[in-house]
């Protein structure tokens, strides 16, 4: 039986496995070009940064993208420089390139990812489902300062979360961290109040509505631009708040969805239940 094996043998075996893994990693790293100096100009990310994926795809279709030996001419794509605050009507108007990849170029991927998060959250609620036993009580009741302080902090945190996901196309951040920030504000409310529980039905409705909004925005793109999740709004000047078309709309939907989902997960974890 495995349980007879002495503890030291198991530890030595674990150290051996970890050592083999690390030596393998090192052997791979020595084959990489000079530490980690990758060349972005040889990868597809070049088109995302330069915002000319359409043009490159057209050249690929026409056959002018490859030369005689079928070597891709990645440096030959004609390109107009992008200036912050001046360039207008780009293919994708977001100043934050990561956002433009997450929402615009690979939006379908993000839709699947949101679905996975939804499945994980509903799994948590399914596993921990049951009759609510009683309102959980703290041994030391939170004081008045705690009660008022967490509520004031919650309003500030809520505003900051909304700021993060509305400005997702200009500054670092976006729907996912914004939703997580709102959920941590609600966690603060749990700590500062005896027997707090958020409106569960409200969270569910909010979450379903924002999920539906994401799909509906995608279907509007399908009708208007003949492609699912295509940008159907004008992209405007790069760097303005009202730019980048539908990216702000989708990030508001994602932010509300992630925020309500993570709050519901926290609620399901905190509330004690009893199987019926």
């Amino acid at each position: 039986m495995m349980s007879d094996t002495p503890e030291i043998v198991k530890k030595v075996f674990a150290i051996f496995v970890v050592g083999v893994l690390i030596i393998g990693f090192f052997m791979v790293f020595t084959q990489m070009p000079k530490g980690n100096e990758v060349n972005v100009n040889n990868t597809v990310s070049r088109f995302y940064v330069m915002k000319d994926v359409d043009q490159a795809t057209q050249m690929l279709d026409k056959g002018t993208y490859f030369n005689k030996d079928m070597v891709p001419l990645r440096n030959d794509v004609p390109y107009t420089p992008i200036t912050f605050g001046k360039s207008e009507n780009l293919e994708d108007g977001a100043a934050n390139v990561v956002t433009s990849i997450v929402v615009d170029y690979r939006g379908f991927d993000t839709l699947g990812e949101v679905t996975v998060l939804f499945l994980a959250a509903s799994g948590v609620m399914l596993v921990l489902h049951g009759e609510k036993r009683k309102v959980p009580k703290k041994k030391i009741a939170p004081s008045e300062i705690m009660y008022v302080g967490t509520r004031i902090a919650f309003s500030v945190i809520f505003l900051f979360g909304i700021y993060v996901f509305i400005h997702g196309h200009l500054t670092p951040g976006g729907g996912f961290p914004g939703g997580a920030i709102i959920a941590s504000g609600i966690l603060g409310l749990f700590l500062g109040r005896q027997g707090y529980s958020p409106n569960k039905a409200g969270l569910t409705v909010f979450e379903s509505l924002s999920g539906m909004a994401y799909a509906i925005i995608g279907i509007i793109g399908l009708v208007a631009e003949k492609s699912f999740l295509a940008n159907f709004l004008p992209t405007g000047t790069i760097g303005n708040l009202f730019s980048a078309g539908f990216i702000a709309l989708i990030y508001i939907a994602i932010g509300m969805k992630v925020g309500s989902e993570l709050s519901a997960v926290t609620n399901a974890m905190i509330v004690d239940t009893e199987e019926d």
Binding site: V40, T43, S45, I101
Partner: peptide, 24 residues
């Protein structure tokens, strides 16, 4: 990989930013 007033990602036709795809 964020365009700002002082942060140019493309210099002389070459991208100098970090790769945004793995980050996303």
């Amino acid at each position: 990989p964020i365009y700002t007033a002082t942060n140019n990602l493309v210099v002389n036709g070459h991208v100098i930013s970090a790769d945004p795809l793995p980050q996303s």
